[in-house]
Amino acid sequence: MTGGCQCGSVRYSVEVADDDAYLCHCRMCQRATGGVFAALKQVPRAAVTWVTREPDRYASSEIAVRGFCRECGTPLTYEGHGSDQLDLTVGSFDEAHRLRPTGHFGVESRHRAWSEGVDLPEKRTGDLPNIAKKWMETRGNVPD
């Protein structure tokens, strides 16, 4: 599989054994991603090839660093010290739809109201006229 940051300056290729991923609800992941959980895919470090350049890294705690793009800010990795595994953010994969959550971690900080919103009303980006118009004027289409 392949992936990278929003601006394209950090790109990777990774060999994956399956489509399993997980949701991490710990406060560190919430703060690192700016979301109520992080969607992550764990892979062997040796399976990752940084195609353009390696991400910049921030020592987010005593036990790990997090990789990100210094240009656009996209969170890319969680890397525990001394581990032969690392976690890639699901949203950074080009084909993120392939991956499926198989479990939850850090549930002591879980915000259930945000992670169980399956029955909430839904709208597509193109359903919002003011946003759709801006995309059409600048790009010529509404992105997926």
Rank of each mutant, 00 (worst) to 15 (best):
T2C: 14
R66Q: 00
D119I: 06
L88Q: 02
R11Y: 04
R98Q: 10
H81I: 12
C29W: 01
E137L: 09
G140W: 04
R70H: 12
D20L: 09
T33M: 04
H81S: 12
A46T: 08
G103N: 03
T102A: 10
A132W: 08
S13T: 10
G8Y: 02
D19M: 09
D56S: 15
A132T: 06
A39N: 01
M28H: 07
G34V: 03
F37R: 00
A113T: 11
T52L: 07
A113P: 09
D84A: 15
E62S: 15
K134W: 12
H25M: 01
T125K: 12
Y12K: 11
E62F: 10
M1Y: 11
N141W: 14
M28E: 13
T89H: 09
H111D: 13
G82E: 03
E54W: 01
G35Q: 09
D127T: 06
T33E: 02
C72S: 03
D84F: 07
H111I: 15
V90H: 07
I131H: 03
M1I: 12
A132V: 04
N130T: 14
L86Y: 04
Q6F: 13
R110Y: 01
A39G: 06
L76E: 04
P75C: 01
G106V: 03
G4R: 04
H104T: 03
P143Q: 04
R27H: 07
T74L: 05
G91I: 01
D94A: 12
K41L: 08
D127K: 02
P129H: 08
V142P: 05
V14W: 02
E15L: 13
T74H: 05
Q85I: 10
R124G: 14
